[in-house]
Write a protein that binds this DNA or RNA. Structure first.
Lengths: 173, 173
DNA sequence: CTTGAAAGAAAGGGCCG
DNA sequence: CGGCCCTTTCTTTCAAG
């Protein structure tokens, strides 16, 4: 089982979240380690699934998808989006979260235009009762996950919360 | 002024969102182009800001931050989180969105434990009225932004909303 | 945009502090 | 575990068709 991350690991994670294309040489320079040493640590982090992958960060607005909205969806039983293949049928859905409380899921969608967004709402609305919220602007997104204060590490909820998900594109927990 | 993205650009974006460390050679093979050709396109996409950067995708659960929550925050005027430096004071805040509607902002936070989460709620609650929602599980996150259906590009809401993707009906993808 | 070649850099292995 | 050396491999970049 994987040991807890030390400070160097967090520095590595921080750097790689800012620039995922850093070479082991550059990375080693930033964290005061030699290239083989950081290569070892990075490999360990990858094998442990802490680093789930590397991806280009896309500016959706500049890519022609300037609109973002959150959709709370209370599913009709059996027609929940979660159980369907949201991948191909709903390319506009960028995130799916299962929430506590009354609503089944929280979706995040990207749209090219208001008519497009409207059409998405209608399409998703067929799956249940929806509550939509349009994003006016976004200050942060994909902000680097940082090391939490030390005192917060106690009292872990329980192992087993994370369903041993495959560390694959589109799903870090 | 940047021209609209064509199908090949979208394929490149798709591949780079799945694996941001692809070499131009590998990438070229995937999109049926030579290395120099895709290097050119990628460079153009980077300069246009469509590709905003590259980053390692972290599995926050495996990194010791298994809890996610959304916080709707209605700011007290002048004490809005948006205007403060959320960077250093709130390392747990991963996203900040300004929303339409009554609530000022939507925050997304990562926490190591329930006490930690509780403490975050209390800390952020000082800035205004909050409405919290804990995420039970996440199906997708950071799902690749995909090319929208062609018909959605028409009828932009109003000029000035997006200075990218001049959309005309019947435009080839 | 493609092919081809050259220069440069990076990754992996082995050994020692 | 980390640092240093080496060798091999790959990527990048330039040139020309």
């Amino acid at each position: 089982m994987s040991r807890a991350l030390d400070g160097t690991d967090w520095r590595i994670l921080s750097e790689l979240q800012e620039d995922g294309r850093l070479s082991f040489n550059q990375l080693g320079r930033k964290v005061n380690l030699s290239a083989p040493a950081v290569a070892d640590r990075v490999r360990r982090l990858e094998e442990a699934g802490v680093i789930a992958g590397y991806q280009a960060r896309i500016d959706a607005t500049r890519a022609g998808l300037p609109l973002t909205a959150f959709i709370k969806l209370r599913c009709s039983p059996g027609r929940c989006l979660l159980t369907t293949t949201a991948s191909d049928e709903y390319p506009e859905v960028v995130e799916i979260h299962k929430l506590s409380g009354s609503s089944c899921t929280l979706l995040r969608v990207r749209a090219a235009s208001m008519p497009h967004l409207e059409e998405i709402f209608e399409r998703i609305g067929r799956h249940g009762e929806i509550d939509t919220q349009i994003v006016l602007s976004t200050q942060y997104e994909g902000r680097p996950v940082a090391e939490p204060p030390a005192h917060t590490r106690s009292a872990q909820p329980s192992p087993g919360w994370s369903r041993a998900a495959p560390a694959r594109p589109g799903e870090p927990s």
